[in-house]
Design a protein around this nucleic acid. Structure first.
Lengths: 341, 341
DNA sequence: TACGGTCCAGAAACCGTTCTCCGAAATCCG
DNA sequence: CGGATTTCGGAGAACGGTTTCTGGACCGTA
């Protein structure tokens, strides 16, 4: 027995209500809403009027179920508390809203081994049209290799990837910029506080630094390793303070640079008079470090934006299956660098 | 003419496939998956076997369409680039994943007037079960008053709210903690660099500061106003440096405190010897400011977590319609505070 | 007047689930 | 061993849309 049409448990209008009010069938409403042709202007008006009157909004679930396009994308983010990843996420969000895409976010610490599978499963369950992965570490990049193959995927900040488009900031160029800046100021050589070896970004910054040094026929001093945190920068800074003769340091991110500055100051070493320091990222606070930090700006917003653009291109069929978009960094010179005494 | 069952355009298994493989009907599969009774153990096993073999995952769209529960929540965030809101978002995410809820995020700048309507509409379209709003400013809190009334809503960091549960950190207590710490050190009075007047958090910190002062029968010095940014803190810092006799400053957040420290140092004023500075938030970098910043820690993670807990309670019917959860802050004493000379 | 072609708009199938009946098989009781 | 009662599992109607198919109204033309 078909249920009697009564007792609206919820007050939300559905397409049928609109149709009834406009005196047409629900398919006609659908046609109007999706801009299909063959609808008389007067009919279209009547329908739109009814839509406004009932404040009708189509149900995305129902629409997605039949049309196979949910107009939502998933974002899978690792290390979401770091400045880079969280900024990229913000960029994706902004861009997605402009394009009227919904964004479902899953954050993961790459410690969690089965996490990627679970997360991917969850996103697939939600029927997202595609997934943008922010995978700046090798562990993360490796983990995403076994995302379901049918799912359109774009990787951000990931350097190796089987066959998915990637959007990255040119770390190599950025590191060269920083190192060359210091060499041009007259420093004999430049030390480097690196990020974790597991991160392609860290590795590329090392390579850019080495490239700039060898262009000047300089051997690289030993590497100091950090883990991106200000604390690890502080520890590296203490080593630097204890090593005589160091006049210039390129630090792989701003937070570690903050730690380095802290350690140097603690040791009574003046920046930039005795040691010049360059960071990487240009986080908003960098300008107010003590002294104001010379650093390399990464446009994370553009990375996110570009990632979504690529995603949409894939979904629309004009698919660059494995292209790489590269965003250029820029050097911001402030007070933490100067010529050696 | 019914379509012939052929040509699987996608390779994703649906419930019917599982049913066929297990030799049962799709309803039985549904029963097994949802833990309904009246299924023989052997049948259950056969179904689970088929599920594993086909790597079947139920389609959340279809499930949500019929069951009216999408097991997804929306997060509406203002000022998402700030430390507090973004940390709260992270807390929500973590908690949601544990509870197997999907999270759809929309970020808004409160400049955008129609934004809330659009965002709420979008979330409603996605059929989220509820919305958690991170609305730390009055403009934001005001904007969310006209969210669709049917939608379960929890507000975070919002102080006034018509009839929705709220989760906040006790700003008043935190500000008192900070101010009392300075007074106990022997300072005659404490200056305050406030956040924007539009923010309840900023106002409550002012009130907490005033309360601590008047408990010591002290009149409050004039207020210095900032906008949360390090730059505005820097400007306030220059004023402080130009005003003789100031020995203690309570700054309404860490980023502004950074700016204050920068300005004081630039003016040759020593911290904490000449001026003591306390911040608010305890962002990860605060420990490595120069000097290490005494500050008030807010557990944003707990705020997000608590927000989701409240949300789920509402959804489960045990609805605290307009309760308020209050998270306690704690004082972290570091090197930027000391007794006056 | 009869005829073929557009324009409109309705009927009905379908997407992949959950849920409400209902009938058949299995179990219990006397 | 027969009938009442439970257990098990199937049929089919929703949910709220999109899409294909179909047919009536209207037009110009012969």
């Amino acid at each position: 027995m078909p249920r009697m049409g009564s007792a609206p448990t919820t007050n939300r209008a559905v397409m049928h209500d609109v149709a009834r009010l406009a005196g047409v069938s629900h398919q006609t409403v659908s046609r109007v809403l999706n801009g299909h042709p063959h609808v008389r202007e007067t009919t279209r008006e009547r329908v739109m009027q009814a839509v406004r009157q009932l404040n009708y909004r189509p149900n995305a679930l129902a629409r997605g179920l039949v049309s196979k396009r949910s107009r939502s994308i998933g974002v899978l983010s690792f290390d979401a508390s770091l400045y880079g990843p969280s900024s990229a996420l913000l960029g994706i969000q902004r861009a997605a809203q402009e394009q009227r895409y919904a964004v479902t976010v899953v954050t993961l610490s790459q410690q969690d081994p089965g996490g990627v599978q679970r997360a991917a499963g969850m996103l697939a369950e939600q029927s997202v049209d595609g997934v943008i992965v922010i995978a700046p570490s090798n562990a993360a990049a490796h983990a995403i290799q076994d995302l379901p193959p049918g799912l359109p995927t774009v990787a951000l900040e990931a350097s190796f990837s089987k066959d998915m488009p990637v959007v990255v900031v040119d770390q190599f160029a950025g590191a060269r910029l920083a190192t060359e800046h210091l060499l041009r100021l007259g420093h004999q050589t430049v030390w480097h506080v690196a990020g974790p070896a597991d991160w392609p970004e860290a590795v590329l910054r090392i390579e850019g630094w080495r490239a700039a040094l060898s262009a000047g026929r300089l051997a690289g001093p030993p590497l100091l390793a950090g883990d991106w945190s200000a604390r690890s920068g502080y520890q590296a800074g203490r080593q630097i303070a204890a090593t005589p003769g160091i006049t210039a340091v390129f630090v792989a991110n701003d937070q570690m640079a903050l730690g380095v500055l802290h350690a140097l100051h603690e040791a009574g070493i003046k920046v930039p008079e005795q040691v010049s320091v360059v960071g990487f990222d240009d986080m908003p606070e960098a300008e107010f470090f003590h002294p104001a930090l010379t650093t390399v700006r990464q446009d994370f917003d553009e990375v996110g934006r570009s990632g979504l653009r690529t995603m949409i291109e894939m979904l629309d069929g004009s698919a660059p299956v494995a292209a790489e978009a590269r965003v250029a960094p820029s050097l911001i010179v402030r007070a933490s660098t100067g010529s050696p005494a």
